[in-house]
Design a protein around this nucleic acid. Structure first.
Lengths: 147, 147
DNA sequence: CTGAAAATGAAAGTCGTTTTCATTAACGTG
DNA sequence: CACGTTAATGAAAACGACTTTCATTTTCAG
């Protein structure tokens, strides 16, 4: 019942839908989209509305438990916030998101920001490409290269 | 007339609109959105359609002269490709994009990809925050902090 | 219990992006 | 240079993810 109290201190109420959405979100694979979470939630309670899922995902971000991740494919994903900042390897084929440690880089980025008198609020380190799994099945069907 | 020949080798034709759009794009500030380029082009020739601008921006990307940049504010920007990869400092207030050198980081990222048997196609290094200019005018009106 | 405030679900609205389609233009070829 | 194939254009419609609206229901402090 910890979450309920936590929300209360911020002026939010707990509801069955919210409880289900929150639990589902934290149980799922990281980096879910609204649709993915919506599908999951509907499996457990088919009466929950899309906008409710969406609003709660936004709420989770607002209270600092997740962040929006934008890979440029037009779909916003929600990434659970961890204490350690991390980078993402984003597979252009299977869309998987693999995390990696970015401690080294952080130092550099902090310095860079300071040098420019820029006040950092967040970082995004991303490698786009093809994951090990997809590279295997890449012999016959190739991606969309130019021309 | 170099561009025309270049396009021809890839099966594309040159048109007055295309010529105007290409020239405008390369003359403008880096990181333009479709709307911004459209506005600029319309100043020079008000009969050019939005979709034509959009398609040519896509074409510029396809032939490798620009890349889409997605900052998560719902607007795709087009960043001229330079030989040197670079990072972006993105001001959450004025939306300005400031570039910085990322040579150090590249080594690290390359190694990281290799370790995971990940085939990199592109990188994205971004610092979100507030630029020097905006920090000054940040005393009275503050941004949207949680709650 | 009760009322004020928040949450919900359905539907509609928003907005940037993308496609469709009829028409026009480019340009290698004859 | 006229021709025909193929690409490009412009207007409008379609798309799709995201966001808001609104009437109704639910939560929860007092």
């Amino acid at each position: 019942m910890a979450m309920k109290e936590f929300l209360r201190t911020k002026g939010f109420k707990m509801t069955p839908q919210r409880d289900l959405i929150f639990k589902s979100f934290f149980e799922m694979d990281r980096h879910v989209s609204v649709d993915e979470l919506y599908d999951r939630v509907r499996q457990l309670n088919s009466s929950v509305g899309y906008s409710t899922v969406w609003r709660n995902l936004k709420l989770i971000c607002k209270i600092g438990l997740a962040e929006e991740v934008n890979l440029g494919d037009g779909v916003t994903r929600y990434d659970r916030v961890t204490k350690v900042p991390h980078g993402h390897m984003y597979c252009l084929k299977c869309k998987e998101l693999i995390e990696f440690n970015v401690d080294h880089i952080m130092d550099f980025l902090t310095v860079t920001a300071n040098e420019n008198n820029f006040l950092p609020e967040g970082y995004k380190i991303e490698i786009q490409g093809y994951c090990a799994k997809c590279r295997e099945t890449m012999s016959e069907d190739n991606g969309d290269r130019l021309t």
